[in-house]
Design a protein around this nucleic acid. Structure first.
Length: 298
DNA sequence: CTCCCGTTCC
DNA sequence: GGAACGGGAG
């Protein structure tokens, strides 16, 4: 709890500084102009592990096509997954989750989004981060969000140890009660434009400079982010490629899909490999296999 | 080669 | 707790 305890009379100034900084100037993402929980959920799911700049166009187009949970729930999964791959949004499972979540809202929640993080977390693909984000931005009713940006800010500014429960505790203590919408937007904006991997304290006019431990010591170490395996040549790349190919065809024999997924396709070994890949995609509910033929799951 | 507003499943 | 999950951009 070093965050709040070390700043007994200062916490109000810390909070006010950040909110003032955010309200003075911030990136004008379109989803920051709506309070529709569905539209916000779509933006959050799209944004997971994806650059925000790349999400903007996909978000608007998605909402034109499926403006509410009813229309999305009524769509074929293959259409949603097809949209996902067309817009290069990655992680096709997230398209499936979003489609599922829309169905849950209709069938389990009578068409109305839950307004509490706990209820939102029952939706497919909605974990702690997204639940608090949607509750905050749609209903101003969330807890403090903790994502990699927030962690980096807390770790540097207030010496919070690199430990998830510590981050949660401090994040919660720091957030002014009942102001989750502006607060969560503000602290993530700070991590996104000022307290980046390479810090931009002066350029961004960071409001935490007078309290920031890293700013005082010059040590801008950040929590370790797990390094990802190489994407080129990976199984993930092949999965993505398979989905994209299948989006172009109604259905396809395995032997025609194979060469399109990997140039060195062939032989009994290659056949087995492809069966395994497609079988995993089927287990994920993304494709359907019938004998020798594959298609996107409807 | 790294990073990007995480979640799910084992 | 760890692995798996896409893909573009710097």
């Amino acid at each position: 709890m070093s965050g709040s305890e070390s700043l007994p009379g200062e916490i109000d100034r810390v909070r006010a500084s950040l909110i003032e900084w955010y309200e003075r100037d911030h990136r004008d993402f379109p989803w920051r102009r709506t309070e529709d929980p569905y539209a916000i959920l779509v933006s959050e799911v799209m944004s997971q592990q994806t650059q925000l700049e790349r999400v903007e166009e996909a978000w608007a187009t998605f909402l034109e096509r499926w403006p509410d949970p009813e229309t999305l729930a009524a769509a074929d999964r293959s259409a949603v997954v097809g949209f996902w791959t067309d817009h290069r949004l990655g992680y096709n499972n997230r398209a499936k989750y979003l489609h599922e979540a829309a169905g849950q809202v209709i069938k389990e929640f009578d068409g109305e989004f839950p307004e509490e993080p706990e209820g939102l977390q029952e939706l497919q693909g909605v974990g702690p981060y997204t639940a608090n984000a949607v509750a905050s931005f749609a209903f101003d009713n969330g807890d403090a969000v903790v994502d990699t940006n927030v962690k980096r800010v807390l770790y540097r500014a207030f010496d919070v140890p690199d430990d998830d429960s510590a981050f949660e505790d401090v994040a919660r203590a720091l957030m002014p009660a009942g102001e989750s919408r502006v607060w969560n937007n503000a602290i993530m904006e700070l991590g996104g434009v000022a307290c980046q991997k390479t810090p931009r304290c002066e350029e961004a006019g960071c409001p935490f400079r007078e309290w920031c431990s890293a700013y005082a010591t010059g040590d801008f170490t950040a929590p370790d982010v797990p390094t990802q395996p190489t994407f080129e040549g990976s199984r993930r790349q092949k999965r993505g490629r398979a989905i994209r190919i299948l989006k172009e065809y109604d259905e396809l024999p395995l032997d025609e899909l194979g060469p399109r997924v990997r140039v060195d396709y062939g032989g009994e070994h290659g056949k087995e490999w492809l069966r395994g890949l497609v079988s995993d995609l089927a287990d994920d509910g993304l494709v359907e296999v019938e004998g020798d033929r594959v298609r996107l799951r409807r």
